[in-house]
């Protein structure tokens, strides 16, 4: 006899996987469409109505391109690197609480793949793993541009992880837990009667630091130095072609999706919407509405990623390091101290 919880988790895993891939696929379409609209163009509009079949066409193109492996490359590492990038990108979504508990046959089920004690640290760990795909791929290509991209990626990741962690610590201190579920529950209700009780209103500075670091960790513009086309050809994926390149690009979009979900969870109340509990009492309807609310928040952040990409120019390398080490880390530490002070004042 298989326990129902196992069946539920298995189904949920498949759904989360499908949603991640689907959102990532349509994020590529959205990116091109939004880029077009920002530049007073149409964007893709020929494949299907409004170009909606464009991701399929892109995927088909990727699969049928020549799969080229450079002769001087480390073959095994060269082949496995895009897989690592994809794997780490997909793994992160395991701890995100998608919506409030669903009740099936009287038993409540948490809509979260793994409610582990250290949820936020898990996210952090796998985000920091993400750089391995890039580093190994860049090194195994045996190309100087790829190596430059790989080295830039690793130094960028290490630099911005610190500020990201410090910004997160303030939230963790306020919540008193590392579990993402508790963090979402902590943001129920409203603040001063009119604002939603979201962490972004209590931690605006921390949110800003976290957002900037999230941009840097996903290698998105203005922090796209590891792959900047104008300086490094294609950065770490210069030598990649066919679906291996596709996996690298796809992993970036999945990272974007997952990090949007995490920003929404930590700072924007996850699936919470104030006053929603007053109108809907049925837990299953509430769960569906909660998921939709969460999804809208995620889509907003994906849009923000694209909005920023098509607005701001890329940082120079020394500016990147300067911002990470000399600006964000001190700001995050001061924010941490101020938060700690407030918490102590509240105690006494």
């Amino acid at each position: 006899m298989i326990e129902p919880i196992l069946i539920f988790k298995f189904a949920l895993a498949i759904i989360v996987f499908a949603i991640s891939l689907g959102v990532a696929a349509y994020a590529t379409y959205g990116e091109r469409k939004i880029a077009g609209l920002f530049q007073d163009r149409f964007g893709p509009n020929n494949a299907g109505p409004w170009g909606l079949l464009q991701p399929l066409a892109d995927g088909g193109k990727m699969f049928f391109k020549e799969d080229f492996i450079p002769a001087a490359s480390e073959k095994f590492l060269f082949i496995i690197a895009p897989g690592i990038a994809m794997f780490t990108a997909l793994m992160t979504s395991a701890v995100i609480p998608w919506t409030s508990a669903i009740v099936i046959a009287g038993i409540p089920y948490q809509v979260q793949l793994a409610d582990i004690d250290v949820g936020i640290l898990y996210v952090f760990g796998f985000v920091s793993m993400g750089v391995y795909g890039i580093m190994i791929g860049g090194w195994a290509s045996n190309n100087k541009y790829s190596l430059m991209g790989a080295i830039r990626a690793s130094s960028q990741m290490i630099s911005y992880e610190l500020a990201m962690g410090l910004a997160l610590l303030a939230v963790i201190m306020m919540t008193g837990s590392l579990g993402l579920n508790e963090i979402v529950d902590h943001q129920k209700g409203s603040l001063f009667g009119f604002l939603p009780n979201w962490n972004v209103f209590k931690q605006p500075v921390g949110f800003l630091v976290f957002l900037i670091c999230a941009f840097a960790e996903t290698n998105r513009a203005p922090f796209d130095l590891p792959e900047c086309e104008t300086e490094l050809v294609g950065g770490y994926h210069t030598e990649y072609s066919s679906m291996k390149l596709g996996l690298f690009l796809f992993a970036e979009y999945i990272n974007m999706f997952v990090s949007s979900a995490i920003i929404a969870t930590i700072y924007f109340g996850g699936y919470n919407l104030p006053l929603i509990g007053r109108f809907i009492t049925d837990p299953n309807t509430l769960a569906v509405v909660g998921f939709l609310v969460f999804f809208v928040k995620i889509l907003f952040f994906i849009f923000l990623y694209m909005w920023v990409r098509w607005t701001l120019p890329r940082f120079r390398y020394d500016q990147l390091m300067h911002l990470g080490w000399k600006s964000l880390i001190p700001i995050a530490i001061i924010n941490l101290l101020v938060t700690a002070g407030f918490l102590i004042l509240k105690e006494y």
Binding site: F124, G125, S128, M129, I151, S154, M157, I158
Partner: peptide, 17 residues
Amino acid sequence: IVQIIVYSGAIMVLFLF
């Protein structure tokens, strides 16, 4: 998770770097 963040995530990335 600390093993992953600190050793695999940070120290080994620096090593590789």
